[in-house]
Design a protein around this nucleic acid. Structure first.
Lengths: 131, 131
DNA sequence: ACTTGACCTTCCAGCGACTGGAACCCCTAT
DNA sequence: ATAGGGGTTCCAGTCGCTGGAAGGTCAAGT
């Protein structure tokens, strides 16, 4: 299987797959002409990576998860630890974004959005406390 | 006022303030020794930027907002447009993250997290559909 | 006067995870 | 022979800083 077929199979762009090789996440074999060839196992790994990245895991986490996946003597607690840490980061981000969302929603609702300069959004940003 | 006093006043690191000058967001004056000096106006701008960045606006948005702020003949609709666009990006991000959160929460709850290899997190990532 | 140490300056490199593009090789079909 | 659609490498850029090196300046202490 060539890289572009892989790309469509896994949903990852070919560029990304090459990048994953470059940083040592995967080690696809090469055929005589120098083209990358992907075995079934390699395809599985790419699928795994695609799903892990889609869940927001960092490349470093992906590396660890991949190693754990391939380690049959792993402890599931190690996997869970990574996932739990990632989950709490996500929850922190959601909290941050939700705070921004609340403020912005409020401001956007309050602003008349007409052709006059008067604007509660700018007032807030400039520190004119209208809260 | 020197840059580090500014930094503590606005909460922005000195490095960031220099960076803002480098990219043309602000134009602090210089005293004879080459040090940046910040007028009251410049300080206001920095505060403005700090608040806008804290609300997640991109540097480009900040640039536009700053220009609008200083433009007395602005239309508040232009400000609102920027804020509304940003708000919907934030909402999209929250939606993405919440989806991840739900999946991860579920997986973390399901995983025993012990010393055995059996792990629903890895199962899901590897495509063993347990959903 | 001299030194110390804290500040300031510039410039350059690196982060994460790609993404775009240039320049070139390979394979197949016409 | 050529045209096209693959593949390859390598280098630069994205965003918003952040760290560090190398050096200039200032205020205080000896």
């Amino acid at each position: 299987m060539n890289i572009s077929q892989d790309a469509t199979a896994t949903g990852l762009p070919a560029k990304t797959i090459r990048y994953y090789e470059e940083i040592g996440l995967i080690r696809p074999e090469r055929s005589d002409n120098g083209y990358r060839t992907f075995t079934q196992t390699a395809l599985h790994q790419l699928h795994f990576l695609a799903r892990a990245r889609a869940l927001g895991f960092s490349i470093d986490d992906c590396r660890s998860l991949l190693m754990l996946w391939e380690d049959r003597s792993r402890a599931s607690s190690d996997v869970r630890k990574i996932a739990a840490a990632h989950l709490s980061e996500i929850e922190a981000k959601i909290a941050d974004l939700t705070a921004m969302q609340n403020t912005l929603k409020n401001l956007v609702q309050t602003c008349h959005g007409n052709d006059r300069p008067d604007c509660p959004i700018l007032n807030t940003l400039s520190g004119v406390s209208s809260d």
